[in-house]
Design a protein around this nucleic acid. Structure first.
Length: 423
RNA sequence: GGAGGUGUAGUCUAACGGUAAGGCAGCAGUCUUGAAAACUGCCGGGUAAUACCCUUGAAGGUUCGAAUCCUUUCACCUCCGCCA
């Protein structure tokens, strides 16, 4: 959510930034509603002041056993008018909230201008693509060969896109989760959190899943809870409606959770194997910090994820997402992509974003600045560290040997308990 | 799931239906070589504001006026039932 006051005072700037994100919003309608709101509040405040003053007078008169009937009669009409104005105000505020909740965040000045994903900018590429002297198997062939992921039975038990990890597949999953969490906690200084996998609507709204991405989430029938599409949702909402102490900032939290996504409308695209599935595991990183620190925190976060990827010894690249391809909540996003030799394509395994105060405003997460004593919104950042299925795809494909076995990178071997899958 | 009880600001604790009082913690400052103590200010939110408005878990209702009375709901505690 943007600051209504900022919109009011920087109308052209906001309009221009939104256009870069290929978004048109009825800002004039908003300005008009905002003006109405302030008028009604002003009118109601005058009457409330009158009511508060006279109520005290009535109390005095009653105490002195006097007659306050005429004042009480006057207050009756004043109260009725206040009630009417408050009703009007509620209506206006509902409309304003609806507009505000649907205005996306503004892109940061450093973000490259572009219209589609083709305009994203490659910032850096790491590692060498391996030359294979034998026919490369794709990940689907490899998981079948080693019987480590069972897609058919997953489809039977639940549905398509709910894979079953088995034997070394399940073990690899567990090894990756431990490796990522240890890296985040021991090396980068994050606190490990194991959050609920279901959240309420207030939380979903706080991080921006509602109203924009409701169709992407699974919802429980009786309670109206949502299965989390990413642990970013519970991790950021840990601090919803709180005022944090300045000295507690920045907050670094990391968590492993399964993630659930309906992926409505994406059928036919990337349906093969485990590239795009309804339930997948992910380790997430979240930072809560002061506004002036968020871009250095962002750079550090990118560095952390990069370092983890380097340890996996696979070719990967950093991609600066352009204005037109960015999501709703972010001001700046850098994606990490690993190389798939079978598809000869880069696969997104991490997305690192600064949301500035957009989520903080929705979720009402603030801190008190000691210097001024004032309360301000924090900035929130998040990044995957990392998403598992595509890491598994890349590991299987990049580390396959001529005999079909998978020789794992050194960093993973101790977590996995052995050097390779197969033979 | 059933019965009962409790929710006041970061925390503890007041307020016959008359408009949220205090303590502690915290922050800033004075004093001090430094710290502690003491003293001063701030210390729920909005606002440029010491004006004014809003705030007693949340949402409604009764009333001129609600922390207080009523209804619904949420969280926590105790007991019973069920259960990994």
């Amino acid at each position: 959510m943007l600051d209504p006051k900022f919109i009011r005072e920087n109308l052209d700037f906001v309009r221009e930034k939104l256009a870069k994100k290929r978004f048109t919003v009825d800002l004039d309608g908003f300005i008009n509603l905002d003006l109405q709101r302030r008028n009604v509040v002003g009118e109601a405040d005058v009457l409330k002041n009158r009511r508060n003053t006279v109520s005290r007078e009535i109390a005095e008169i009653k105490k002195a056993k006097g007659n306050a009937d005429s004042l009480i009669a006057e207050m009756k009409t004043v109260s009725d008018k206040i009630q009417e104005l408050d009703g009007t105000l509620r209506g206006i505020e509902t409309q304003i909230d609806e507009v505000l909740l649907n205005i996306p965040n503004l892109p940061h000045d450093s973000v490259p201008f572009g219209k589609t994903e083709n305009d994203n900018v490659v910032l850096a590429t790491f590692g060498e693509k391996r030359k294979f002297d034998f026919p490369v198997l794709d990940h689907v062939e490899l998981i079948e060969k080693h019987e480590i992921i069972d897609l058919k039975r997953g489809a039977k038990v639940t549905g398509s896109g709910f894979p079953i990890y088995k034997g070394d597949g399940a073990r690899l999953q567990r090894a990756l989760i431990s490796f990522f969490l240890d890296q985040n906690v021991n090396v980068y200084g994050f606190t490990e959190i194991s959050p609920p996998l279901l959240v309420n609507a207030d939380s979903a709204r706080g991080t921006g899943q509602l109203p924009d991405k409701e169709a992407q989430m699974y919802e429980t029938k009786m309670e109206g809870f949502f299965l989390i599409p990413t642990s970013e949702v519970p991790l950021v909402n840990l601090f919803r409606d709180e005022i944090l102490e300045e000295k507690k900032l920045p907050v670094y939290v990391t968590g492993y959770t399964p993630c659930f996504r309906r992926e409505a409308g994406s059928y036919g695209k990337e349906v093969k194997g485990i590239t795009r599935i309804h339930q997948f595991d992910k380790v997430e990183l979240v930072k809560i910090c002061k506004p002036e620190d968020s871009y250095t925190e962002f750079d550090d976060l990118v560095e952390n994820v990069t370092e983890t990827l380097v340890l996996l010894e696979m070719p990967f690249r950093q991609l600066h997402i352009c204005t037109g391809d960015m999501g709703v909540t972010q001001t700046k996003t850098i994606d990490m992509e690993v190389w798939s030799p079978s598809q000869e394509k880069w696969l997104e395994v991490s997305s690192i974003s600064n949301c500035e105060s957009f989520q903080a405003r929705r979720a009402n997460i603030r801190f008190r600045r000691n210097e001024t004593g004032k309360v301000e919104f924090v900035h929130t950042l998040n990044g995957s560290g990392l998403a598992l299925p595509r890491i598994i795809i890349a590991l299987l494909e990049n580390f396959q040997q001529k005999d079909g076995s998978i020789l794992l990178p050194k960093a993973l071997q101790k977590y996995f308990g052995k050097e390779k899958i197969g033979n």
